[in-house]
Design a binder for these strands. Structure first.
Lengths: 134, 134
DNA sequence: GTGATGTTAAGGAGAAGTGTTTAAATCAAA
DNA sequence: TTTGATTTAAACACTTCTCCTTAACATCAC
């Protein structure tokens, strides 16, 4: 099985960066353009973020499905819906209104436009009142 | 940015599996063959393993490069090399000979053939004597 | 402004991943 | 042994990723 998201190239660049080299210096070493080094580094960081996100998802498997935030919904109405649903299943949400909205928006910025939910968002909650969005 | 390694299909299958459904039952629900469900589930688990592996790599960034095991090297000679190098940098390796070899082989099975190292393997060590291979 | 650093966009070639089907193989339990 | 569950392999169309180049743009320090 292929293992690890990062390519050899990406690891190489990350190591050099960790050692404080500039993109130009790295470009000289690995014989390519600095633009390319930038691209490779960016891809590497995205891959790391994706890895984190993937493991984050595993939590939703242990959590129970709470509700679905329908596309078109006003983001500011989400907390009340979630609090109500959480109460039904007897769990206290561990986030206040503001941090709940922040968590929601941070979970996947692409799914929101201003105050509006663009696509359906599934909401999961675990025993601790932790929320996950999928 | 695309986020998460798992496709919707893969998440769907994992959720049904978590709920105890058989591959056949899932196949009926999502209207495909059970073989396909198996493939999707397997791919999902591989992706999760890859995510873990990716984050594991981050540790090597905080570690210092110890040495390179050259292709063709006898695997059984690796521990001595590593112990010697670790001593030079003043760190005690936290693995005995046997578990060191196991860790090495587990790190990436493809890189070994029997007792022989096929490709160069970079060895990293951190302050705790933990080893990472890249 | 000049130079160094970093980012972004557009495009291309090759590699890899995904979902799918079909068919065959393994495995455990009734 | 027969049945249900799971796994594997091969093949195919599609999509996405990766690395690369070139060229332009944005910061920031000197």
């Amino acid at each position: 099985m292929k293992q690890g998201l990062l390519t050899d190239r990406q690891k190489e660049v990350l190591r050099y960066r960790k050692n404080g080299l500039t993109q130009q210096q790295i470009a000289d070493i690995i014989k390519t353009s600095k633009a390319n080094v930038c691209t490779i580094e960016k891809a590497a960081l995205e891959n790391i973020a994706r890895a984190r996100d993937t493991l984050e998802f595993l939590y939703t498997l242990d959590a129970t499905h709470l509700c679905t935030l329908k596309g078109g919904l006003d983001l500011l109405k989400a907390p009340e819906i979630i609090y109500t649903e959480a109460e039904k299943v007897g769990v206290k949400v561990k986030y206040d209104t503001v941090s709940l909205i922040n968590r929601l928006r941070d979970s996947n910025p692409d799914r929101f436009r201003g105050r509006q939910v663009r696509e359906d968002v599934e909401v999961y909650i675990n025993e601790d009142g932790d929320l996950y969005f999928g």
